[in-house]
Nucleic acid binder design. Structure first.
Lengths: 346, 346
DNA sequence: TTGTAAGCGTTATCAT
DNA sequence: ATGATAACGCTTACAA
């Protein structure tokens, strides 16, 4: 049968058993780390080596419930997720799990595809950022009994573990800092308000102004959509006002990049022409000019919380309560929020 | 049996068939898009909905050879890979494939784990950056008949499709640019020379100097390991020379960040104090000061080449020849390589 | 310790 | 178009 040559049928546990002169049960036990007579062990190892056998995970996972796979639904491979994934991978690895990613680009249809895919793969757990409309989709996963952990955006009313950061609180602190330095004309370039991160960051902004009895000017509140472009046009909008702000808080990294681009094109510098504080901290902010003051998410802690929730649910399928963890962010003070020359209120 | 409630046994095609009052073969045909009598179709859809059935991919892939999965062995989620993955995902999606990532952190053991995992999952194809020692590992995958595409670093002697960029050529052009602007004391912070990208980028550097009859000073050649730290110490080393360079080429993004950090700490600016050209282009380089001249890899084209090689091999398992594609990079001229005041050779 | 055999949830091949 | 049934490659009792 040259058929074997052509089709390259992969060797199975049967082939290994044949060649080693033992039963398939023995080979299986060998593969799963059971006790094997020394001579047989050698035979089996020889056979596996010679045949180039590798266990078919699909077949294996049909009997044993666990696949060892944890599926991560990545919105997009941005800096935050890149960092999060880099932290998460070793954590899952150390508990014997394999993390696989599937990117959905925040498209609900792709999110659904991703979910369906992971469910069909019978992953042991799912990690996802809550996105608008995710609730219905995640509900199905909850019903099917697959443990899931969500982060970033809340999804109400589902039996899921959650890991968040205290967006509102840290933003309030950041705005307070701008106020202390002398700013009163403080604008915000906010993210999508349908997402709880977007809403919370804006709430934090408003809370700070209110607490300091600074009037909430609607023209200082510009809604972005997290994108670089929306940051760029927010800067444009704000700086075209008759009474432009002296400081702006941008609710994420990308929008800050957009703002910086606009400023560069208009030869404006920070903090002299506009003070700046950004959510998320990246290389750029450390190196840019005198530095961009930024809110750093505790990525390592976030990763740890996610991993521990996921793994504990896998190992103990009937933990009765939802767990929820809200972590604190740090503010990294840099030049962009420094005292500026001409920003004292007249 | 409350057993069902507790264990939450997932509904199978059998349960669906029972409830719909048809045979499992019919349900299977429905699932795979076959012709079904209208009344039955309705019954089946009702049953699937009511039961919350989802096909078990593992079971399915036991009979049909294809899994529809393409495995990507990611070294680390850095900016280049983030971008590459973002480009690749939709391409594979459009051909009906699912791209999954597994990160190996350039650790040969993890690389091996990743390979074994994907092979055991019977992925349809594998994408990997060549890493040193990858050859032995990838050899196994070639033997087992899984098509693979490698990029970035070459791995000689294996039947694999390859996608590269012309590292040497573009670096030569970049160095020529520095020479044209008046530099002769040009240093390099090179990457790992065991990797072909590292070696080629250095070769490009040397070729430019040689062609311009500039003596190759060994003290201007500092070996880094691609990391931020190695860039930082390279800057330190170079600028401590009695006769320091006036320009430096850094072989990747991270090392440039390290160099910039060192320069910032020592209040040096670019290009006045040190001209700079970097491999890889990122937000930072566009926004930094007067900008950092950078070599931009054609990520979109790289993704397209990878996807087309992978998909064509999956669809036609016996393409006789290895395909190889070498793409050209662009040089984005910015301020950091501008004519500097005090860099004319004395 | 080992062999035997019964599944696991699909797909595919038959008749019908 | 549908139903019955034999694989697919493995794990896991159970018997030996």
């Amino acid at each position: 049968m040259s058929d074997v040559d052509l089709k390259r049928r992969r060797p199975t546990i049967n082939d290994v058993a044949d060649r080693a002169g033992v039963a398939i049960g023995t080979v299986s036990r060998y593969l799963n780390g059971g006790e094997i007579r020394k001579s047989n062990r050698r035979q089996i190892e020889e056979a596996i080596e010679a045949l180039g056998f590798t266990r078919n995970a699909a077949a294996a996972s049909m009997k044993s419930a666990k696949t060892g796979i944890i599926g991560f639904l990545v919105p997009t491979f941005d800096e935050f997720h890149a960092s999060l994934l880099n932290h998460l991978a070793p954590l899952f690895r150390s508990t014997g799990h394999t993390m696989l990613t599937y990117s959905h680009e925040e498209d609900p249809r792709l999110f659904e595809d991703a979910m369906a895919f992971f469910v069909s793969q019978r992953v042991d757990a799912l990690i996802a950022a809550g996105i608008p409309k995710a609730d219905e989709l995640l509900a199905g996963c909850v019903e099917s009994g697959i443990p899931a952990v969500i982060y970033n955006n809340d999804v109400r009313g589902l039996f899921l573990d959650r890991v968040f950061v205290d967006n509102a609180k840290v933003v309030t602190r950041a705005i307070n800092h701008l106020i202390e330095v002398g700013h009163t004309k403080i604008a915000i370039c906010s993210g999508r308000e349908e997402e709880s991160t977007g809403a919370e960051r804006r709430e934090g902004y408003e809370a700070a102004l209110t607490a300091n009895e600074i009037f909430l000017r609607q023209d200082y509140i510009v809604s972005g959509d997290w994108s670089v472009e929306s940051g760029y046009s927010a800067a444009q909008t704000l700086m075209s006002l008759k009474d432009p702000p002296t400081a702006v808080f941008a609710a994420n990294y990308q929008m800050t990049v957009g703002i910086l681009e606009w400023m560069r094109e208009h030869s404006m510098r920070t903090p002299q022409d506009l003070a700046l504080v950004s959510f998320d901290d990246v290389d750029l902010f450390r190196l840019y000019d005198e530095g961009i003051t930024a809110i750093a998410q505790p990525v390592s802690q976030i990763a740890q919380a996610i991993a521990s929730y996921a793994v504990s649910r896998i190992e103990n399928t009937d933990l009765p309560n939802i767990r929820s963890r809200t972590l604190q962010c740090d503010i990294i003070l840099r030049g962009s929020s420094g005292r500026s020359v001409r920003n004292r209120e007249g």
